[in-house]
Design a protein around this nucleic acid. Structure first.
Length: 288
DNA sequence: AATCACCTCAACCGCAACTCC
DNA sequence: GGGAGTTGCGGTTGAGGTGAT
C-alpha cells in the first residue's frame, strides 16, 4: 500500500542499546509533553531514534511505574494461569500484572516457564524417557520455545492473537430480556464447544464465531465487545475452588460474573465454561 | 586463562488494527 | 468507502553475561 517504513535504515538513526543520555532526553520529553505522537517525538525531542524505538524504550524500560526485579512466585502462577486462558497475548497478560511489561513477561515465558512446561509436558507424555542431555543445570534447556503448542496438556493456546468483535449465535439460543438489550444464552454455545471436538475454539474468552452451515442464514451477527470487567472478574475467580468444590466454585463464579450478567444473562456463564477451564486446570494443578 | 556453550533480555522487525482525511 | 499514516502487538534476533570445560 505504499506505506513508508517507520524507520528508514539510511537516515543515520541510532540503533541498538540506548545510552543514559538518550534515556534522559526521552524521559524528560515525555514528562513534559506526555506520551503519544511517537512518530514525531524523536524529531521534537532531538533524538536520533525512530518513534517505534522511543515508544518501546519508554514502555518497556523508562516508565516510572515499571516494577524491577524478579518475577515472584505469585506473579509466575498468575502468568501461567493467564497464559493458559489467553495464549501468547502478552499485552493482555501484562495488563493483569501491574508494573510488568509485555516484553518482560514474554521473555520470562520464553526463557523460563514455557521451557519448563514443555519439558514437564514431554516427560509427562513420554513416561520414562530420559530428559534432554542439554539439561545439565536447573536452568531450562535451549530447545525452541514453542510454548504450550507442544504441551500435551494444553489445548487453548494459539500463537497469533487476533481481534474479533462479532459473534454468531445459533438462532435457538437467542433470548431477549428487556426490549433494549439482546441477551445471550451462552450455555449452549459452550456446551457445543465442549461436546463437539470438531468445533474449534481458540480462546475461551474471545468472542466466537459459530457457523452452522445449514442454519447460518437464520443466525445473526451481534457486536460482542470483550468487557474488561468481565475479563477481570473471570480471572479473579478462584479456580482452585472451582476445581475442588463444584458447588462453591459455582457460587464464586456466579459472584464473579454478577455485574457481567447485565450483559450476558442466562445460565451461569462460569459453570458453562468450567469444563473448558477445568481441563486446563486439571493439567496445571497436576503439575503443581 | 582461553574457549565454548548456553542463557537472558533489550531491541528490532513485520504485520495487522486503528484512525484520520 | 478507501487510501495513507499511526500505533500496538507478538515473534525474533543478537549482544553481553555467566558457567562449564
Amino acid at each position: 500500500m505504499g506505506r513508508s517504513p517507520c524507520c528508514s535504515k539510511d537516515e543515520g538513526l541510532n540503533r541498538g542499546a540506548w545510552t543514559a543520555m538518550e534515556d534522559k532526553v526521552l524521559t524528560e520529553y515525555i514528562r513534559i509533553h506526555g506520551e503519544g505522537k511517537w512518530r514525531n517525538l524523536p524529531k521534537r525531542a532531538g533524538l536520533k531514534r525512530c518513534g517505534k524505538s522511543c515508544r518501546l524504550r519508554w514502555l518497556n524500560y523508562l516508565r516510572p511505574d515499571i516494577k524491577r526485579g524478579n518475577i515472584t512466585h505469585d506473579e509466575e502462577e498468575l502468568i501461567i494461569r493467564l497464559h493458559k486462558l489467553l495464549g501468547n497475548r502478552w499485552s493482555l497478560i501484562a495488563g493483569r500484572l501491574p508494573g510488568r511489561t509485555d516484553n518482560e513477561i514474554k521473555n520470562y515465558w520464553n526463557t523460563t516457564i514455557g521451557k519448563r512446561i514443555q519439558v514437564e509436558g514431554r516427560s509427562c507424555s513420554d513416561g520414562n524417557r530420559r530428559r534432554p542431555t542439554q539439561e545439565k543445570t536447573k536452568k531450562p534447556t535451549q530447545s525452541s520455545p514453542e510454548p504450550s503448542t507442544n504441551n500435551s496438556c494444553t489445548k487453548v493456546v494459539r500463537t497469533k492473537a487476533s481481534r474479533c468483535t462479532k459473534m454468531v449465535l445459533p438462532h435457538e439460543s437467542h433470548k431477549f430480556g428487556d426490549s433494549t438489550e439482546p441477551v445471550i444464552d451462552a450455555a449452549p454455545i459452550f456446551e457445543e464447544v465442549v461436546n463437539n471436538p470438531t468445533v474449534e475454539i481458540d480462546d475461551p474468552l474471545s468472542p466466537m464465531l459459530f457457523l452452522d452451515d445449514e442454519n447460518s442464514t437464520s443466525e445473526f451477527l451481534l457486536d460482542f465487545k470483550m468487557d474488561e470487567n468481565f475479563l477481570s472478574d473471570f480471572l479473579n475467580v478462584d479456580f482452585s475452588v472451582l476445581y475442588n468444590n463444584e458447588g462453591a466454585g459455582k457460587a464464586a463464579a456466579a459472584a464473579a460474573t454478577e455485574d457481567t450478567s447485565n450483559k450476558l444473562h442466562g445460565p451461569d456463564l462460569q459453570s458453562s465454561m468450567a469444563p473448558i477451564v477445568d481441563s486446563e486446570l486439571d493439567c496445571w494443578l497436576a503439575d503443581n
